[in-house]
């Protein structure tokens, strides 16, 4: 097996548009790790230079650099930037190697159509979070449970309602009266 040399334009194109590198077959580049490496590296550098200076308050006088509150986060961020850059480079070169018909890593796509099913559930979870303050924990939990059962089940309404109400009430009773956790009831205050 011969390893084809990587030309500079190819590397540049990959950085600009990692999903459609010109001259390189999509199958030959380990896109997942390459994109991941670039994204994490960029994020780490952004936090290091853009966020850390104002998000971590530092006392005026510090006897030793290592005692500064920013010292530890800086070490972590520099390490993350370095490691993720290494991941991108490794993914890029393993992709180039595999062009000669010697696949280095599986070409399994990170996301596929089946993952679209997750989106309604994730949206339901976000709506649930938004409903917590006005409605407490119990009502939104019943609604979320019912929504999830109906979304992914066979539309058995009576059974779904029964399971939703019973499950949430049992959990409420346990946490309220056994664990003594003051679970907020929202509009149900005074009823339960």
């Amino acid at each position: 097996m011969t390893v084809r040399p990587v030309s500079r334009p190819h590397a540049l194109i990959l950085i600009i548009n990692p999903f459609q590198p010109e001259g390189l077959s999509l199958k030959t580049v380990n896109k997942r790790d390459f994109v991941l490496g670039l994204v994490v590296c960029a994020l780490a550098l952004f936090v290091l230079f853009g966020i850390l200076p104002w998000a971590v308050k530092t006392p005026k006088v510090i006897p030793n650099l290592a005692l500064s509150p920013t010292f530890w986060p800086r070490i972590i961020l520099v390490s993350m930037a370095g490691l993720s850059a290494l991941l991108a480079i490794q993914a890029y070169y393993s992709g180039i190697k595999s062009q000669d018909g010697d696949p280095v890593e599986s070409e399994e796509q990170p996301f596929d159509m089946s993952d679209l099913r997750v989106i309604p559930t994730a949206l339901l979870m976000v709506l649930f979070c938004a409903a917590l303050k006005p409605f407490g924990v119990v009502l939104p939990s019943i609604a979320m449970l019912l929504g999830m059962i109906l979304m992914h089940g066979r539309g058995e309404w009576p059974k779904a309602i029964g399971v939703s109400v019973a499950t949430v009430l049992i959990l409420y009773m346990f946490f309220r009266y056994v664990a003594k956790v003051p679970v907020p009831l929202g509009p149900l205050n005074g009823l339960l």
């Binding site: 924990v137 939990s141 979320m144 449970l145 999830m148 059962i149 959990l171």
Partner: peptide
């Protein structure tokens, strides 16, 4: 099963 586990997570 999954929705019940989800509510358990919330509590």
């Amino acid at each position: 099963l999954y929705p019940v586990v989800m509510v358990l997570c919330v509590f």
